[in-house]
Design a protein around this nucleic acid. Structure first.
Lengths: 210, 210, 210, 210
DNA sequence: GATGAATGAGAGTTCATTCAT
DNA sequence: GATGAATGAACTCTCATTCAT
């Protein structure tokens, strides 16, 4: 069930150093990719922005695509971590869900450029890496499935089990919508208004009290 | 309010010919971009697949990005045309909306690779072209706004005017969701089931009878 | 029996032009490879010495190794052509052989740097091209086999058929020896002396009258 | 007349250690050069195959070319040693020569990949090192000169002094021929047959009895 | 209006060598 | 004496674009 994450080989032996350098690479590359896109960013720019030479860059990755993979992976990690940190699993599923939705929309807002990056550049990944990245997305959506099922179990949420996945997907998509369409949405709504409105929409379907 | 669509200069005088050649270009490029992505497709390939030489290609465009613009524009056109053709503006706004939603989801399904293309490659457009393309998207979403307003006017839909835009955006996003997440969604739903379920979700908020 | 020679694809359509440009490439590359070796010669140097840009070079070849193949092929062609031109198939096999040996040693002498080049760089060819180049060598050695057999047939040469190949190989090797060891040999012999001495050696084994 | 062999500087003081490490280097590099060629072998690979780090490698050599020199030198040493071990200087020059030829051809056969290596990579040596390596070859050929002169002196061999060098060179070349052309020759001859045939050829010229 | 040969800046990647630890 | 991370010049190859025919 748990498939290991893709391991990128390195010419450097010290694992601590690898981690440190890769963090530098990710930090530099995220910025560059956001502003210039993956294809228009050169490996030399990545190296320079990371603070070392092109030769050193290639001691820690095997190809430019590896950098993209590292970046996508790191972004997903951050989304998931932030989301999990913001959720306390106390109270009814419904209550948790509301909180989780708020947090999720907030995280999407704060990380909107990075989330956008994933959506636009993911296709440039080699097949295997792509599969892994898509799986990471499912892991985040699984958080919401879990909450929904808890709510179903404690009776605070009314939803057919077979629609749990779709509802979780809807949630993900409404979150990403804030990212994709912020240039329009921000004209009419603050994040808070948007959040409230979409929670309304989602809960109308699944709230028990009716 | 209606800004003209971007005009791409051509070295050729005859407008009929320009249109004909550009259709060839678009047809060839859509296929290539879908399968290889914009960046990995070369202008030579576009020319060859269009049925003429690289020199001729550049008689009808000024840069590779122009081809992307033509392609994005054509896809939006097709989405909008197909959608409009499927809608008859008879009956209550609510009835029209239901029909429009079904048609929209169907069009998204049929054109999913082209819609995906727009989402993934749009960022490679130069700023100005990008603005035009985004505006085309708003034009489609405006169709739904129109229907919603008609429903509000005739009393078949209950929705605060200030949420019309958001509701239209929600519709767009749920349609695109079928495109982005089809690999997951198709495991659990047919297009028809998905359509029905999402219409349920959307109408629960805005249907009058309740 | 006659396997086609390897065809190198070109982006250019005009066959006349391809031939002309490839001749330029060969002429330039032979010089460079002789003086710097294949590995130390850069593609840019080849392009510049050929009289065009690096981009143009790659319109006529697919890889640097293709240039080496073209060069090896051209050298073999020249050896074979020169040798065949120098031989008239009149008289006894023995007489023809003597003349052929003189010509061969002369050709080896005149083309010594190019022959050396083949011996030293051939190993850098990709497998398939290598096989073809080795076959070319056998074709030259076949010329001598042919002469030997003619001499056996007309009674001017006495040699067991099963040693024809070895004798032809010996001839080839003594010719190449003048190439490999000229720095030593030239200290003690002129080309003419060398030729005479080696003909003596070879003929002692196979001459009938004795 | 006897120029010392090239001395490669080392950062390490202990001569025993230098010798030991260089033996490791040679053993590793011979294998790599045979299979991949000099240019396609990296210093990293040499270091790893030698059993130490790249840094350590450079404590014992100054450049990659030094490794090639060490390798060529070692191979020549082995050829010479094996040859000398196989020769007993008892009996007539003619008898010794026959034995020496057999041994030489056998050694060439056993060491064919290493001999081939020298012929193909020698040109990558810097000028000075190249001279040393070529001189080593002359030293081997000098063994045969010595034997020939002994035979001339004791009357068992009839050969003009001024052709001794050429005859020795011919011997060398026929030995190397077994290396260069083994892919053809082995189709028609065993090593023993080849040896016998070539001895015949050579002795026909120089044997006294006639 | 159509052709396609020519261009060359610029891309990703490699690897011999150094030097601080 | 040994290590291996860091370096950057240099490599091969690509491809959007131009322009003479």
């Amino acid at each position: 069930m748990l498939e290991k994450r893709k391991t990128i080989p390195s010419l450097v032996k010290d694992p601590k150093l690898i981690e440190k350098r890769r963090e530098q690479i990710i930090e530099a590359a995220v910025d560059l990719f956001i502003h210039k896109g993956f294809h228009k960013t050169t490996t030399r720019e990545i190296a320079r922005a990371s603070g070392f030479s092109i030769g050193t860059l290639y001691e820690y990755i095997e190809s430019k695509e590896d950098v993209l993979y590292l970046v996508c992976d790191a972004i997903h990690n951050e989304v998931e971590t932030r989301l999990r940190e913001a959720i306390t699993f106390n109270g009814t599923g419904l209550k948790i869900l509301k909180m989780a939705l708020k947090s999720f929309f907030r995280v999407m807002d704060q990380m909107s450029d990075r989330v956008l990056l994933i959506y636009q550049e993911t296709k440039s990944l080699p097949k295997e890496a792509l599969r892994y990245v898509l799986r990471r997305e499912e892991e985040i959506s699984a958080i919401f499935e879990e909450i929904l099922r808890k709510g179903i179990a404690d009776g605070s949420i009314r939803l057919d089990e077979k629609h749990v996945k779709l509802m979780a997907d809807n949630i993900m998509v409404l979150g990403e919508m804030w990212v994709f369409r912020r240039w329009t949405l921000k004209k009419h709504y603050t994040l808070e208004e948007y959040t409230e409105k979409q929670i309304d929409l989602l809960l109308r379907e699944i709230s028990v009290a009716h």
